[in-house]
Every structure is written in structure tokens, then in C-alpha cells.
Amino acid sequence: MMNTRIKRPRIHLGAWGAPLGIIGAVIALAWIVVAFLAPVIAPHDPLAQDLPRLQAPGGDTILGTDSLGRDVFSRLISGAGVTIPLALLLVVLSVLIGTILGSIAGFFGRWVDETIMRITDLVMAFPTVILAMVIAAALGASLLNAVYAALIVSWPSYARLTRGLVLGLRSSNYVVSGRLLGFSPWRSLWRDIAPNIIGPILVLASLDIGTAILLLSGLSFLGLGAKPPTAEWGSMVSDAIGNFDQWWLGVFPGLAILTVVVAFNFVGDALRDALDPKSATLRGGGPTL
């Protein structure tokens, strides 16, 4: 009879990875909850200009008010509800587009590969933020256009990554065996390749959420994204520029961006360590005596 051992957990977290990853996950999760519950939990109407202007934090308005008499705290919460869901959407769409194109390029090769890769080269040749700015400006400043612009500059890295992963697996014995058994290329991609490349893609995606947030709030900061009076962190920071004495106007949105991005980065790092290729499925086995 076959010896069976208790399955070793596939995920082994390194010494530092675990605590940071968990902290990151908690913070990220908290922010996501805030984002989706924003309308409910904001104490004041984020758009209402009915409070005393430029009030320092304290009393009724724990984070102060801005130059138009709006509650910073409520705007912060509302802003979360704007940026975070859009950033998540952005990442999901980039992953979808990028991985599908990358898989096709990697598996089918030849002119399909050439075409797709030259397009990714073209897009990646430009500095991401600048290209996004140009596209957003061309489309006209709006949050939705900012998302389109960000999407255009974000999908290529997934395409590249996926193509590399697919190329690596395409000639694996088990994939070839599947083809010999009569699998169509699509079946091979779906059954044999996709489940085995999810790891690195997931890691990239989770690290990318932070980038997406920075990109979106950055575009808004520059006036190419969210339009006033929408509460958005980037534009809130932008508003704060004229009022440096009122430190709370810039610091809190800045801190919000910082904490969300860092939190997602910790999660991404922990995921990457956990899915360490040495212990991952493909390698199989380990050293022998």
C-alpha cells in the first residue's frame, strides 16, 4: 500500500512575511470595508459645505474641515469608496485583458505572439504615469476616463508575465502528454496551463493594487481624474496645496493613500513569499539523498 503522509501545507510563510502580511491584510480589508460602507458611515455629507471653514481637527470634525466647509473625515471615507473600488476594478480588468492576450501570445506563438508583443512593447516604452496623463487629458478629465487611461497602461505587464509563464510551461511533459491525448490548444491552456500560472499573476495583481490607487489618485491630483466636488484622495491633496498652514487638509488624505498602498504591498509580498517557487507545485519533489 502506498505510504501517505499528512499533506504539508503548501504555503510556508517566512520569518517576517507572516506578521507583515497579516497586518497588511487586516488594514487592507478594513479599508475595503470602509470603502463599501462609505455612504453609511460618513458622519457628515461629504459634499455639503455647511461647516465652518478651515477648522482644525477636533470636536465635531475629528479631522477638520476644508476651505469650503466640508468635513475632511467624511470626505476621506467617501474618497475610499471612490478610489478603492475603482482601483480593484482596474486591476481585475488589467489582469483579464493582459492574461488572455499573454496566454494567446505564449501558446500560439509566431505572428500572433509577434503582434501582441509589439503592442505591449509600444505601450511599455512610455513612462506609465506620463502616458496615462496624456491619455486621460486626451479623453477629457473624468474619473471614468482616468480608469480607461490607467487600464491602457496597466495590462501590458500582465501580458508579458503571462506570456513568459505560458512559454515556460508549453513544452512541459504533462502539457505535451495532454496534446498527445487529443487536447485542443484551448483545453491545454485552460486545464493544464492556467491553474499552474495563477500564483505569480496573483502576486503581481496584489502588488499592483497599490500602484492602481497611486495612479488613480495621482491623476486626480493633477486634475485629470475626479472632478470637483467629488471627494477623492488625490484631489483632496491637490486642494491642500493652496493651504499649507492647514496641515490636516493634505496630511490625512496622504496618510490614507499611504496606509492603503503599503497594506496591499505587504499582502503582495507575503503572497509572493508564500507561493515561493521552490515549494510550489511545478517543481515537485525535493532533493534526495
Partner: peptide, 17 residues
Amino acid sequence: LPDAPGDGTPPSLSDAD
């Protein structure tokens, strides 16, 4: 360095490792 395939027992050490 690549792993050697397992046919074997824990803990072990590959020559190439």
C-alpha cells in the same frame, strides 16, 4: 540550483544542491 526529483525520503540533500 534545480531540485532533484523525489523518490525518496526526508530530509535529504541533492548532490546538485
